[in-house]
Amino acid sequence: MVKMSDGYNLNLFLVLTVQAGLLYLFVRSLIKPASVSVVLTNQEEKNLHAKHLTVDLALTIACAGKKISVLQLKVIKNYIEKDIAPKRTSEKIAYYLKLLSYYFFISPDFNQCSLISKQIFELLNFAGRYDILDFCMRLVCADDVVTTKQLVLLKDMAEQLEIENERFRLMLGKIIPVSKYEVNDIEIILGITSDMDAEETNSLLGKEYVKWNARVTNSTPQIRKQARDMLEIIAKAKSQFTH
């Protein structure tokens, strides 16, 4: 603690506060997503811009409900190096600082996610958008726990990118092991919503059940495990809705 009565310490305190304030402003400027200021006509430029936006999106989602992990930072760093590959060292350093700032000062604005996704939608075709959702899912999955907040953001991202619910859940089932979910959100995992009546819910559960039951004997161990876990979630949902 800083003792205010001590003149020397007060000076130091002021200096530190000003420095911290400047650093904070700098970091905030890094966190702020790149916005489209000019209309891009060239598809290559559009692709590159979408990738810059993806980094912001990915960093924000990775921080949702938890601290971003070192492993996730590495995934994003790889993405930057492989897919964006900034040539200028200064740009690279700026990017790395950005990554670090997310690690040390996590206060991203989650409301930005929808906005960034919308911008990406304007820039890319379906395949490109699909790849970005795929990347963000894999990024979230690089950590041991996937938070509900992250799932909600991914779902919103899919909506903004106009990737149908069915396809979204197919991707989710393939990429994220159920055992990583912080909470099993049946609305997102199974697509059950509160406005569905009993018949609709049952039919949806039935379809999911048949799908995952057939995968219990898959030759890939990870798929077998996922299928078993999914059957448990489906059974739990079934007993909730029938009682």
Binding site: N202, L205, G206, Y209, V210, N213, L231, E232, I234, A235, K236, K238, S239, T242, H243
Partner: peptide, 17 residues
């Protein structure tokens, strides 16, 4: 065993369908 029995119901539904 409620959840296990729910699975028997689900399978029954699937077979009928």
């Amino acid at each position: 065993i409620a959840e296990l029995l729910s699975r028997t119901d689900l399978l029954l539904d699937a077979a009928l369908a």
